[in-house]
Design a protein around this nucleic acid. Structure first.
Lengths: 362, 362
DNA sequence: CTGAAAGCGCTAACAT
DNA sequence: ATGTTAGCGCTTTCAG
């Protein structure tokens, strides 16, 4: 270990508003007023104060500010994971909008576990945030009903808030999945399997419902929900699926992760797409168009989902209203037809116009 | 617009420590002491206070706490984008470690622009964070030298901090790229092109240097750095590259984004990999092994990079030291051999053991 | 237009 | 073991 130069302790306390005031020969309030820009300060004193601020390199302490004022200028963002590109993009959008509004974002992950989420929410509340955006974990135990939540603005994203007065931003999961599966049906497929993640995820249920609607609507019988947990498991699952007596001729993947599991499995089992089996899925991703074959997917407006959630939140914050019923915004999805479905040329169909509605409880 | 039930204003101020103290019939300090667990409180009063806390559902105000104590229990994380899987994974790691330490994370993005980054840093400083983790934008103007930064702990990640006393966590870019290119050379390729993002990115320079070392080390002449900015541009670039009089027979992609551009271009131009041209790149990603052909890549320990950065930061914070020289941790990379290089069976070579060194200035 | 006093909710330092 | 006093850095209120 080499000897280190450098101080053990941080330099003495930083310069405060009082220091600036003294140097400028004014009262603290004049400095405060100048900074907030709210009230009138004469040209001359303003200049003097400005100079003092620059000389001392004064930086207002936002913590102290927050303690006094009703706004902490901070929002919280709670999501399951950050390494899922969908969530990451939402987070980026939220961060961008927050910056535009002069707000900071406290971010944290729940790992899809309700208890961790609840803990994180409580922690955020103690930090006196002005609002929060949550992608709620499944089986939310309705802790958001408590009294503590009466004075926070909350928007949920990707999944609805159960029994609540909060706003939600969702995409048209059911219609999107229905359209994707319907397209597979148009190709003449009669037996189509739906593969998804954990069944208790809202999005998976909604998409599975869309799948069932498409099937029954075409007079076909929907298959059971197939839950994929890993690459390995999916290989087994797909293998047994294809050796059934009436194997599916097409597959629909519930999201981009499921799709990756599926691609891996199909690859391992050396099954040709779309030759031996057709493929489509929910959620577009970066190289879906570069894959061989290019993937047919239902695309959701990822960035807009995050952006919209943030905008709704700031609307609430600035209005300071706590309505009894939340809004539910449903963003449209789009069917991006590429090759994995069996098509020979690419095209797009937008599905489900943006809708805003009062939340019906449940 | 339907009429909304709900209050216009938030309910009156939340319960404070004084409320708890009054209800429990004790002084504020007793409550404070109980909560911090630091000093002795008698069994009986402790119970009374606990009961009062539960009855009122008291939540301590962390803001007020931070104002008084020297720690805000908050760190900042500043990165270019969140939608890059590399950064997102780092962010996830940082968030996880921070939670373990009871810390909150303020996150924000710089869009690779130094001025935005500087602004964000200043903003964080005003919020009295205990430390920050930065993935610095190129051409950092050395603003981190200022007096304001004397009392903050800073760790940079993925890229070094120029002229500074801060810790950095990097990966072995040069050695990794060198190994990747060397492998291509082993396949008998004599003309190999390097494609990267903006040239001013530290990682791109380091990897390009590794490429050049591998080439000259084998007695070959390195080609010029090829900068890719988009799918479209890359198509043109690759096309003209392959119609030169002495076209490359192998390509090395500087990171996962470049690789995607490249895959798109190769796809458009209907060039077979590895038949017509061999391919390798830096940075593994989720479905690199599912692609046809599976991609040979230099893998970096993404999560560990973020984790290490966070650990270094908390070490600094807990020790409260401000040494004159920072540490530089270099994490090893690993060559993951799959098919795009021309190999027929897969294997792995770890390259460059983890090293820790005092930062040499520059 | 400007200032002095009070206090946001908490904890450190000194009482008792 | 517990209470009292002071004050973190700021803004709100009330006076000039």
């Amino acid at each position: 270990m080499t000897s280190q130069k450098g101080s053990k302790t941080a330099p003495g306390r930083s310069t405060t508003m009082a220091d600036v005031a003294k140097l400028a020969g004014v009262g603290k309030m004049t400095v405060s007023r100048l900074l907030s820009g709210s009230a009138n300060v004469s040209k001359e004193t303003a200049e003097r104060v400005q100079r003092a601020i620059r000389m001392l390199n004064y930086q207002p302490n936002e913590l102290a500010r927050s303690l006094r004022s009703p706004h902490s200028k901070t929002i919280a963002l709670i999501l399951p994971y950050l390494y899922d590109p969908f969530f990451a993009t939402c987070a980026h959008a939220v961060s961008t909008v927050a910056t535009q509004h002069g707000y900071s974002v406290l971010i944290t992950t729940s790992d899809e576990k309700t208890d961790i989420e609840q803990q994180q929410v409580a922690h955020m509340l103690r930090r006196r945030i002005d609002g929060m955006i949550i992608i709620p974990a499944p089986n939310e135990e309705d802790y958001l009903r408590g009294k503590d939540f009466e004075s926070v603005h909350i928007v949920t994203l990707d999944r609805p808030a159960t029994h609540s007065r909060f706003d939600s931003v969702l995409v048209n999961n059911r219609a999107g999945a229905r359209a994707g599966v319907a397209h597979l049906i148009e190709h003449g497929h009669k037996t189509i399997a739906f593969l998804g993640l954990a069944k208790d995820l809202f999005t998976m249920q909604a998409r599975y419902n869309g799948y069932r609607e498409a099937m029954t609507g075409a007079g076909l019988t929907p298959e059971l929900y197939i839950e994929c947990r890993s690459n390995e498991e999916t290989v087994t699952l797909v293998h047994s699926l294809l050796t059934e007596k009436r194997p599916p001729t097409a597959l629909f993947a519930g999201n981009n992760l499921t799709m990756r599991y599926l691609l891996h499995a199909l690859n391992m089992l050396r099954i040709d797409v779309p030759g031996q089996i057709a493929l489509a899925g929910f959620d577009d991703f970066d190289i879906a168009d570069v894959l061989q074959p290019a993937l047919t997917v239902v695309r959701q407006p990822v960035y807009q989902v995050g952006e919209m959630a943030a905008n709704l939140l700031f609307q609430r914050i600035s209005r300071g209203e706590y309505p009894a019923k939340g809004h539910r915004v449903v963003l449209p999805t789009e069917l991006v037809i590429r090759r994995s479905c069996g098509c020979h040329r690419e095209s797009r169909v937008t599905f489900g116009a943006k809708s805003v509605a009062d939340t019906t409880h449940e």
